[in-house]
């Protein structure tokens, strides 16, 4: 594996560092995993596009040295859809957050998954709206606190990979800031998967989510990820009760359904030919 500093100097815009994230935030770690996965795949830098929405996570686009676009809140996926359809040869990666992707952008998520659009969506999931100061998000667990859930959150949580898989994503996985090798691998596999890939990446937010919910220090929150993230094999052996506070790290679902632009390309080839034939007659 490459040293962290190698990845920073190679793939990040060092004149824009240090980044704006709080001490202890998982986003910087996850951003490095994205760079490591791209490095492993030896992608041509000019052919990689990073699209982000709005929120803490979405500042990642500005630090990564590729074609980058920081879009409107919730809309990273449809912006990315336009880019991919216009130039299918580009590797289009969306970096988004739990609020950006599943609240304001939830409709776009399920429809891009349904189309199996050839995008890789990496969710920096910190269970809270961090940029605006700690409001509950669609992934804040029931009963926990946010500035807008002062009496405890009564909403239920989205399981983002489950949602994406149900909608039609051809690859879903989960990683975390703690699980370095496993997370780099699922990001790599997600990018390599030709269809729609969704990688839920758990990111500790000690400043808001952690403080509001007495989760301890940044280190404590990383330890939580270590102690509660398990493999699919381990998961399969656990009872329903034992699974309650656990989550699977690694690939969750995969299928070979063809990607949208690949199918659309066939329509173009067929219709272009038909029109040309008609012109000849």
């Amino acid at each position: 594996m490459k040293k962290c500093s190698d990845l920073v100097f190679r793939y990040m815009r060092v004149d824009h560092l240090p980044q704006i994230w709080c001490p202890g935030c998982g986003n910087g770690i996850l951003m490095r995993y994205v760079a490591a996965a791209i490095d492993d795949l030896k992608l041509e830098r000019e052919k990689v596009v990073i699209v982000s929405g709005i929120g803490c996570s979405s500042r990642a686009a500005g630090y990564l040295d590729f074609n980058t676009i920081h879009t409107t809140h919730g809309r990273a996926i449809p912006f990315a859809t336009g880019i991919k359809l216009a130039r299918p040869e580009l590797e289009v990666i969306v970096i988004t957050g739990d609020g950006d992707c599943t609240a304001i952008g939830g409709n776009h998520l399920i429809h891009a998954a349904r189309r199996n659009m050839e995008l890789t969506v990496i969710v920096f999931n910190n269970n809270i709206y961090g940029m605006t100061g700690g409001q509950y998000s669609p992934t804040t667990p029931t009963g926990e606190y946010g500035t807008t859930a002062p009496y405890g959150n009564i909403d239920r949580q989205f399981d983002i990979p489950l949602l994406a898989a149900a909608a039609g994503a051809s690859y879903t996985a989960r990683g975390s800031a703690y699980h370095t090798q496993q997370t780099i691998k699922v990001i790599r596999d997600g990018i390599a998967n030709p269809g729609f890939s969704l990688i839920d990446c758990l990111s500790p937010c000690p400043t808001y989510y952690g403080r509001k919910n007495k989760k301890g220090s940044a280190v404590d929150m990383m330890k939580y990820q270590r102690d509660h993230g398990i493999t699919q094999t381990q998961w399969d052996k656990l009872s329903e009760e034992e699974r309650k506070d656990k989550f699977i790290i690694g690939q969750l679902t995969k299928n070979d359904y063809p990607g949208y632009t690949a199918i659309y390309r066939q329509i173009i080839e067929k219709k272009r030919e038909n029109t040309e034939n008609k012109d000849r007659k």
Binding site: P78, T81, G82
Partner: peptide, 9 residues
């Protein structure tokens, strides 16, 4: 959003 994305590309 998709239109803006396509224009960027």
């Amino acid at each position: 959003a998709a239109v803006i994305g396509a224009s960027v590309a």
